[in-house]
Amino acid sequence: MSNNTQVSTPKEIAASLTEFWSPRVVAEVDDAYIKVAKVHGSLAWHSHDDEDELFMVLKGRLRIEMEAGPVELGEGEMFVVPKGVRHNPVADEECHLMLIERKTTLHTGSTVTEKTRSLADQLRPV
């Protein structure tokens, strides 16, 4: 997180990222992190046993695949994946996201893939 006085929007920060599927913490509110990410392709089927996860599309489109059926999100739309629900975020084209998650939320839950990022990675300065 940056401590400078220059103000950037989540949309600007997400656009500046150079890695896909590597969320970065841009703020914290009580026990939650506000993160931004640039995504393309498919992440991984996973769940968060004890945490809800809010996805908000800043640019592009996101499909959140779930066993009950997919949710399609466009720019400015958001959706909360309830705790315990298996899901797989998919972006057919580049998409920029804002995420709100409790600080205890692991990137891909108990599923670990080559795309999984540690909290230390997510806390790196933007």
Rank of each mutant, 00 (worst) to 15 (best):
M78N: 03
G69F: 00
C95A: 05
R102T: 02
S16V: 04
K11Q: 12
L123G: 01
K11P: 05
S8W: 12
E28T: 06
D49A: 12
E67F: 02
T108L: 11
V29I: 02
V26E: 01
T113H: 07
N4A: 05
A37T: 09
T9V: 04
E12H: 09
E94W: 08
A68I: 02
L17K: 09
M1K: 05
S42C: 04
G109I: 07
L54H: 13
D52I: 11
S110A: 12
E28V: 01
V26K: 04
V36C: 11
G109A: 02
I100P: 06
E94R: 02
E53L: 10
A15C: 07
K83H: 08
H96G: 06
E28Q: 11
D52P: 13
M78F: 15
H87T: 00
A27M: 02
M66N: 06
P70Y: 07
F20L: 04
F55S: 12
Q6A: 06
E53G: 09
A91M: 03
H40T: 05
W21T: 01
T104E: 09
N4E: 03
L106W: 13
P125W: 07
V112Y: 11
T111F: 06
L58E: 13
D52T: 12
A14T: 14
R102P: 06
S118I: 05
P23A: 01
V26I: 15
A37N: 14
T5R: 07
K103E: 07
S110D: 11
S42R: 15
G109L: 12
V126Y: 10
E75D: 05
P125N: 08
D30I: 05
G74L: 06
S2A: 05
H40N: 15
L99F: 13
E28I: 02
V25F: 04
L123W: 03
P82A: 08
V25M: 03
